[in-house]
Nucleic acid binder design. Structure first.
Lengths: 226, 226
DNA sequence: ATTACTAAAAAACGAGTAA
DNA sequence: TTTACTCGTTTTTTAGTAA
C-alpha cells in the first residue's frame, strides 16, 4: 500500500475515536467507513498494525484498534502541512545558523557555465560564493529533504577539459523578507541534509552583518507562478 | 482513481501554491512531487481536471494548474474534519429543530422485538416514541448522510404474521449534554437526510420542555469504546 | 458473529514512444 | 524540451470461503 494512503485511513480511525483508547471496529463496519470491502478493511488494519501506526487486538473475535503515538505523529504532521499550505501556499519558511563551509560552493558558483544559467533563470548574477545555513529544527530538515527530492528548476551541468560538472537545482528565495536570492542543490552523492546553501546577487554576510552562528531566516518559493 | 486519493494530490498542489493563481508544473516535476512516474503525474492532473478540481492549461507545451473553488472546498472540508477529529475524536455534535412527524417512529419503537434489542444493546428501554429533529446546517446534513452509510450498531429486523420489519441501526447519543439516548436509522428506501430520530428512556419533549421549532443539541458517539 | 486466506478480476502503473 | 498515448506488467481489490 502506498504510504500516503495510510494517512487517509488513519484519519477515519481518528474520527471514530481511536485515540488514547481502543475502539471496537468489526471489519464489516470498517468496510463501510473506508468504502472498501470487508477483506480490504481487514488487510488495511493489519498493514497499519505492521507499520506500527495502530495497536490491534482481537477481543471475542472482534477487531479493536487504537492509534499509536507514531500514528498520531503522522496525523499531526499532515494537519500541520495542510494548515501551512493554506496559510502560505507555495512558500516554505526556513531558519538556521550561518556557518563557514569549505569554499566548495564558491568554487562552483564561479564557473561561467553555471553563472550564465543562473542569470537566465533567476535574473541575477550571483555573488561568487554561497552562504551556508545549518538547519536545526527537525521539521525544517525534513522539508529540506523534500525540496531536494523535488529538485526545482534545473541548471544543466557541463564538462570542461578536466572534469564533469553535474546538474544543479535551484529554488527562488527571499532572504530576511527583503533580499532576493535562491537556494541551490547540487546532485552530489554525499551531502548533509541539515545544510542549505544560499546564493544571491549580494554578499549577504556584509549586507546583513552576519557572522558564524547568527540566525538567518528565509522563504523558499516552490514554483514559479504565472 | 479512488476519490479520497485525489485529496492527497490536491494537498501537494496547494503546497506548491496552486491557489488563486496558475502555477507552472511540468509533469516531470510533478512526478517527483507526487512520487510517481511522469505518465501517472500526467494522468493524475487530467483526472483532477475532469473532476473539476483543478483548472488546467498547457502554455508553451508546459502544464499549468490552479485549484478550483470546488477543489479548495474539498481541501477545506478535509482540514475541518481533521481538526474536529483531533478536538473531539469519536463524537459528532449535531443541532437541529424539533418537529412532529407522522408517528411512524413511535410505531416501530413500540414493537417488542426491537425494544428487547434496544435494551440489550443500549441498556435502556426507550420511551415509546421518537423525537424528530430537522437539521439545517449543510455540513450537519452531510454528516448525517455519512452516519447513515456507516450504519453503526445493527438491530436485527424480524417478521410477524403480517409483515417484515427491516434492520435498524443505532448510535449512542447524549442529549443536551445530560440525557442518554441514541439516534436511530431505519433501512427504509425513502428517507429525508435532513432528519434525525432520537430515542431515549425519557420523554424528551416533557423532560426538556421542548415544543416544535425549538433548537436541540446532541452528541453522537461513533463507536463503543472499550 | 467474526477474521483473513486464496485465486481471479480489476485497477493502477510505467516503459516506450509519437507528436 | 514538453504531454500523453498504447500496452505489457505489477499491484490492488474483492468474491468465495475456511476457520
Amino acid at each position: 500500500m502506498k504510504e500516503r494512503i495510510k494517512d487517509l485511513y488513519l484519519i477515519e480511525l481518528l474520527r471514530l475515536g481511536a485515540r488514547g483508547k481502543f475502539i471496537r471496529v468489526p471489519t464489516t463496519f470498517l468496510s463501510r467507513v473506508f468504502g472498501v470491502s470487508q477483506q480490504t478493511a481487514s488487510r488495511v488494519i493489519n498493514l497499519l498494525h505492521k507499520g506500527g501506526l495502530v495497536d490491534k487486538d482481537i477481543i471475542n473475535g472482534v477487531t479493536c484498534v487504537k492509534i499509536t503515538e507514531k500514528g498520531l505523529e503522522r496525523l499531526r504532521k499532515l494537519k500541520r502541512e495542510l494548515e501551512e499550505a493554506f496559510n502560505s501556499p507555495g512558500v516554505i519558511e526556513f531558519e538556521g545558523k550561518v556557518f563557514t563551509g569549505f569554499g566548495e560552493g564558491a568554487y562552483y558558483v564561479k564557473k561561467r557555465a553555471y553563472r550564465k544559467q543562473f542569470f537566465k533563470i533567476l535574473g541575477f548574477e550571483p555573488y561568487p560564493g554561497t552562504l551556508n545555513v545549518k538547519l536545526e529544527k527537525k521539521e525544517l530538515i525534513e522539508k529540506n529533504r523534500e525540496l531536494r527530492q523535488m529538485r526545482g528548476i534545473k541548471v544543466l551541468g557541463f564538462e570542461d577539459r578536466f572534469r564533469t560538472y553535474g546538474d544543479v537545482y535551484v529554488y527562488r528565495a527571499l532572504i530576511e523578507d527583503t533580499l532576493e536570492g535562491a537556494i541551490v542543490y547540487a546532485e552530489r552523492t554525499h551531502y548533509d541534509e541539515r545544510v542549505i546553501e544560499i546564493i544571491s546577487p549580494y554578499y549577504l554576510r556584509r549586507r546583513l552583518g552576519l557572522k558564524d552562528g547568527d540566525l538567518i531566516r528565509f522563504k523558499v518559493f516552490l514554483s514559479q507562478s504565472l
